[in-house]
Design a protein around this nucleic acid. Sequence first.
DNA 1: ATTTCTTATCGCAAATATACGATAGATATT
DNA 2: AATATCTATCGTATATTTGCGATAAGAAAT
Lengths: 101, 101
Amino acid sequence: MKRNLEPIEYKENTEALAKFAKALGHPTRIAILKHLENQSCCFTGDLVEVFPLAQSTISQHLKELKNAGLIQGELKPPKIKYCIHQENWNIAKSLFQQFFD
Amino acid sequence: MKRNLEPIEYKENTEALAKFAKALGHPTRIAILKHLENQSCCFTGDLVEVFPLAQSTISQHLKELKNAGLIQGELKPPKIKYCIHQENWNIAKSLFQQFFD
DNA sequence: ATTTCTTATCGCAAATATACGATAGATATT
DNA sequence: AATATCTATCGTATATTTGCGATAAGAAAT
C-alpha cells in the first residue's frame, strides 16, 4: 500500500463542517444532544439510565461531543453537568445553514 | 467481549439525521458536495482532477454519498453525471434545521 | 483516613472507514 | 469484433470507531 501521507488541505469551513458532522454522525450522539436541548442540561448518570449502554460508552460519546465543541461540562461535585456549548452550537448551525443554502 | 447485539431503537428522525451527518463527516465529501452545488453537476473524472486522491477513492466517496441519498448518478455514456439529489437534500436540510432549532 | 458516589480512562475485541493499485464492467466508436 | 474511455468493484493494509468491563480519579461526607 501507499497512502497519501500528506493530508489534503481543505478550506477552513470545510474542515469545521466535517468535524461537526462527524460528531453528529451517530444516533446515540444525536439523541444525547436532543436530550440536552430538552433538559437544557444533564448529568452523565441521567443518560446512562436513558440509553441501554454502558456508562463507559456514554462517557466516550460525551467526550467526542466535547472534543467537537458541541457540549461543555461544568463541575457540580460530585457530578458533572453537561450543557450545549451555545457559542459553538451557533457556529455549527450557521455552517450547516450556509452549506444547505 | 459482549456487545449489545440488539441495536438500539432510535426515533426515525434521529437515525435519518445521523445517517446524513455521517455522510457529511469527511472533508472530501463536503468538498465534493460543494463542488456539485457550484457546478450543479459533474463527472467522476472531474473530481479526480480536483482532488489529489485515487480514482477508486473518489468513487468510494461518491458511493457513500449516493447510499446516504445525497447525490444521484445519471448515465451519460460513457460518463456518469452526478448531481445533488434535490428531494433528499431538502429532507436533510430541514432535519438539520429543526435539529438546530 | 476511609468510604461513597460519580465520571473518566484503560485495555481489549470487533466492526467500520479510508486509502491505494489492479481489475472488471459498461458503452461508444472504430 | 476490437478498441478506447470512463467508472465501479475487488483485494489489501492500516486507522479509526464503537462497545464492554475493570480500574482509576475526583470530590464530598463520615
